Simulated scan of single mutants.
Amino acid sequence: MPAPKIDIYTKFGCGYCARAKRLLDQKGAAYNDYDITLGGEKRDEMMRRAPTARTVPQIFIGETHVGGSDELADLERRGKLDSLLAG
């Protein structure tokens, strides 16, 4: 089974975004990083996918909306991130 697609919506200078990407990098996970600092099409896409989201990062693994950096770190602490990344 192929690894699920990972999308992360970020903004320039966001420490939480850097922390989330660092964790994904440590896991060897390939991801699409969409910078929405200036808004635009990808920000609109993020808002469609997570209508209540008002902060970045917003992380999607496959069809699962993980949430932000804290939620990603929580999945790792609970031992659930690896299986989600595996698909």
Score class of each variant (00 low, 15 high):
residue 1 M to Q: 10
residue 5 K to C: 05
residue 5 K to W: 00
residue 6 I to A: 02
residue 6 I to L: 03
residue 7 D to N: 12
residue 8 I to V: 15
residue 8 I to P: 01
residue 8 I to L: 01
residue 10 T to W: 03
residue 11 K to H: 04
residue 11 K to M: 14
residue 12 F to A: 12
residue 13 G to C: 05
residue 14 C to Y: 03
residue 14 C to A: 03
residue 14 C to R: 02
residue 14 C to N: 03
residue 16 Y to C: 04
residue 16 Y to F: 13
residue 18 A to K: 13
residue 18 A to N: 09
residue 18 A to S: 09
residue 19 R to L: 15
residue 19 R to I: 14
residue 19 R to G: 13
residue 20 A to V: 10
residue 20 A to M: 11
residue 20 A to T: 13
residue 21 K to D: 04
residue 21 K to I: 08
residue 21 K to T: 15
residue 22 R to E: 15
residue 23 L to E: 04
residue 23 L to Q: 05
residue 24 L to Y: 09
residue 26 Q to H: 11
residue 27 K to T: 06
residue 27 K to H: 14
residue 27 K to D: 08
residue 29 A to Q: 02
residue 30 A to I: 07
residue 30 A to E: 12
residue 30 A to V: 10
residue 31 Y to K: 05
residue 31 Y to G: 03
residue 31 Y to Q: 02
residue 32 N to A: 04
residue 32 N to Q: 05
residue 32 N to K: 00
residue 33 D to C: 15
residue 33 D to Y: 08
residue 33 D to P: 04
residue 33 D to Q: 12
residue 33 D to A: 14
residue 34 Y to M: 02
residue 34 Y to G: 01
residue 35 D to S: 05
residue 37 T to P: 02
residue 37 T to W: 01
residue 37 T to Y: 00
residue 38 L to P: 00
residue 39 G to I: 11
residue 39 G to K: 06
residue 40 G to I: 09
residue 41 E to Y: 08
residue 41 E to L: 13
residue 41 E to M: 07
residue 42 K to W: 10
residue 42 K to F: 07
residue 43 R to N: 08
residue 44 D to C: 11
residue 44 D to G: 14
residue 45 E to Y: 07
residue 45 E to L: 15
residue 45 E to V: 09
residue 46 M to L: 07
residue 46 M to C: 05
residue 48 R to A: 14
residue 48 R to H: 13
residue 49 R to P: 06
residue 50 A to W: 02
residue 51 P to Y: 08
residue 52 T to L: 14
residue 59 I to L: 10
residue 59 I to P: 03
residue 60 F to I: 06
residue 61 I to C: 05
residue 61 I to S: 02
residue 61 I to Q: 00
residue 62 G to K: 07
residue 62 G to N: 07
residue 63 E to L: 12
residue 63 E to H: 11
residue 64 T to R: 14
residue 65 H to M: 14
residue 65 H to G: 09
residue 67 G to I: 07
residue 67 G to W: 05
residue 69 S to R: 08
residue 70 D to I: 13
residue 70 D to W: 06
residue 71 E to F: 03
residue 71 E to R: 10
residue 71 E to K: 09
residue 72 L to S: 07
residue 72 L to M: 08
residue 73 A to K: 13
residue 74 D to K: 15
residue 75 L to S: 06
residue 76 E to S: 12
residue 77 R to A: 13
residue 77 R to E: 09
residue 78 R to C: 06
residue 78 R to M: 11
residue 78 R to L: 10
residue 81 L to V: 11
residue 84 L to E: 07
residue 86 A to K: 10
residue 87 G to I: 05
